[in-house]
Design a protein around this nucleic acid. Structure first.
Length: 540
RNA sequence: GUGGGAGUAGCUCAGCUGGUAGAGCGUCGGUCUGUGGCACCGAAUGUCGCGGGUUCAAGCCCCGUCUCCCACCCCA
């Protein structure tokens, strides 16, 4: 058999990171670590504790908090069904009144059988003692039992209706199943069949959920938490925007809505940015009112916008209906003149909101935080009220916001918790890093402290021991796995950016004196094993 | 979802009016078996993003497609 002609050699597919995701590599990751480390340190000085949250949550959590009509929820979420098997997924779809995914019921009968088989087998196995009779297992049998009965009944009804179409009969089938299950059973079955799950597009909702779930209203108020980690939105990637992106955020929950809290939260972010020497950070501030005054303002704005509708672009025309506030931050040059003449929310805040806003500004001044009032700053997520702010930085292209935040007093209650005040922010870590890099804050190339140039079998044992001791003392050590000529070894040490080369050859092993070479100037000296550590420590 | 730009070695890129791939950097080896940076010599690495078409001949022309980048939208 001739190899060449026989078959086209199949090359394995080349994988690449999914669109909008990316690998962060050294040395860049050291900058990421520095940023995150700084966040830990700064936030701790403000009394914040770290919360680590799940990457996914029930879809419902985000729909409720962010707002069902926002772009984030309506088209950018990574949403999927969590279910134990494909068969059960079909069943689940049926029970949850989703669009039927089956047009031929025959397929469904097999699923039905599988559920039945599963339950019967589980029961048998428990009876025989092959599967432990845990409360969980017994619950599965108990919960799915009524479902099986309901399915059997519905099946009979389905068979009766032979004069109708499959689809119609199938809908009836689904209806019968649902009718025969009471609310508790339906809920239990749904719990068993799995939830609608979404990769978190942001973390504020999760923090609120955790606050409620762990009864944090029992803790001394307010509760101050921060988090960092990846978020997911299915957007078109561009500069400073990814589908998996990273946020560092903080939330203050409970206690009062004292303006000093707003100011301190903002002060904390600015302190964090200062510490990182972020260039050109600018704070924009606004108040978008509360449930009382905002709707009135929005109607006023809508009315004004309708008067000039024909002068606006298609996007803004659409926004008059969907979200008039959004017209305010339109980037279109042609609309700027019109926008300048529109009524400003600052003039239409209710008394309480106006007072709150004024006090926030005062508290910022008290803290020496520079800000710029921006009456056009609105937030896209539903839950924001009163104080809103945004921080922009240089070097970011068109996505120039590194931080956005605001007050969200009703959110915890909306998610089923007690009435709770809340304010927080989220920093776009990718953008923050980008801005730091653009202003020349490249991470230092990570070098090694010591490269061990060893030669000879005896020397290897010594080299291993030396490496262990030096590493225990906290030095970064490169120990070549195989013997190399000294020239080669030193060249390698040089390329790795090592500060020292520890030379271990026959002489050193025999004498018990190790040679330490300083790569920068080429000088070298001999030390005993104990003296070497001492010497290096002093140098540090 | 809508526009614009770009895909050639690990990286940065060259490649003429079509004639079946090149440089620099990097990597590895050698000059150099106890001394690095320099220098010189050498080597490896490409389905020219992918698929189709035109042609005797396509990295180059045509069509499609994918990916990346930038912008709109939206947001951190």
């Amino acid at each position: 058999m001739s190899e060449g002609a026989a078959k086209k050699e199949e090359k394995p597919r080349k994988f690449q990171a999914i669109r909008g995701t990316r690998d962060l590599l050294p040395p860049e990751t050291s900058l990421w670590n520095r940023v995150e480390q700084t966040a830990h340190e700064v936030f701790a000085t403000f009394g914040f504790g770290e919360i680590r949250l799940p990457i996914f949550e029930p879809t419902e959590l985000f729909a409720r908090s962010i707002g069902i009509d926002t772009d984030v929820v309506s088209k950018e979420m990574y949403e999927f069904e969590d279910h134990p098997s494909k068969e059960l997924a079909a069943l689940r779809t049926l029970l949850l009144e989703k669009k039927p995914i089956i047009d031929d019921p025959k397929f469904f009968w097999s699923y039905e059988l599988k559920v039945e088989e599963f339950v019967v087998r589980l029961q048998d196995a428990m009876n025989r003692g092959e599967v432990p009779k845990t409360p969980e297992n017994e619950r599965v049998v108990k919960d799915l039992g009524p479902l099986l009965n309901a399915m059997a009944f519905a099946r009979q009804e389905y068979d009766k209706g032979s004069d109708q179409t499959h689809v119609a009969r199938f809908e009836l089938y689904a209806k019968h199943i649902k009718d025969r299950l009471n609310a508790v059973q339906a809920q239990a079955i749904q719990a068993y069949l799995g939830d609608d799950i979404t990769l978190r597009p942001e973390a504020t909702a999760s923090v609120c959920r955790a606050y409620i779930e762990h009864g944090m209203q029992q803790l001394p108020q307010p509760v101050k938490l921060y988090y960092m980690g990846p978020m997911f939105r299915r957007e078109r990637p561009q500069k400073g925007r990814y589908r998996q992106f990273y946020q560092i955020g903080a939330e203050v929950l409970g206690g009062s809505d004292a303006p000093a809290i707003d100011a301190e939260v903002i002060e904390m972010v600015m302190t964090f940015f200062d510490r990182l020497e972020l260039q050109g950070a600018r704070l924009d501030l606004n108040s978008i009112g509360c449930r009382e005054c905002r709707p009135k303002y929005v109607e006023l704005l809508r009315a004004e916008l309708l008067k000039v509708k024909d002068k606006l672009g298609p996007d803004s025309q659409r926004r008059i209906e969907t979200n008039p506030l959004r017209v305010l931050d339109s980037k279109l040059e042609s609309e700027q003149g019109i926008i300048a003449t529109l009524p400003r929310i600052a003039d239409h805040l209710c008394e309480a909101c106006a007072k709150h806003y004024a006090e926030v500004k005062h508290q910022l001044q008290l803290r020496g935080v520079m800000y710029r009032e921006n009456w056009r700053l609105v937030r896209g997520l539903d839950y924001y009220m009163r104080t809103t702010f945004e921080i922009t930085a240089q070097g970011l292209g068109s996505q120039n916001a590194v931080c956005g935040g605001g007050r969200y007093d009703g959110l915890v209650e909306l998610l089923g918790g007690p009435p709770t005040k809340g304010i927080g922010f989220a920093i776009g870590e990718d953008r923050l890093i980008l801005s730091l890099q653009e202003s020349g804050k490249m991470p230092a190339q990570q070098g090694r402290d010591i490269y061990i140039a060893w030669m000879g079998e005896k020397a290897q044992a010594t080299a291993v021991r030396a490496a262990k001791g030096l590493r225990r003392a906290g030095f970064s050590v490169e120990l070549p796995p195989v013997e190399q000529k000294f020239g080669k070894a030193l060249g390698h040490a040089d390329k790795l950016g090592a500060k020292y080369a520890l030379i271990l050859g026959d002489n050193e092993v025999a004498e018990g004196l190790w040679t330490l070479k300083t790569l920068a100037d080429g000088s070298q000296a001999k030390f005993t094993e104990a003296d070497l550590l001492e010497h290096l420590r002093k140098k540090e």
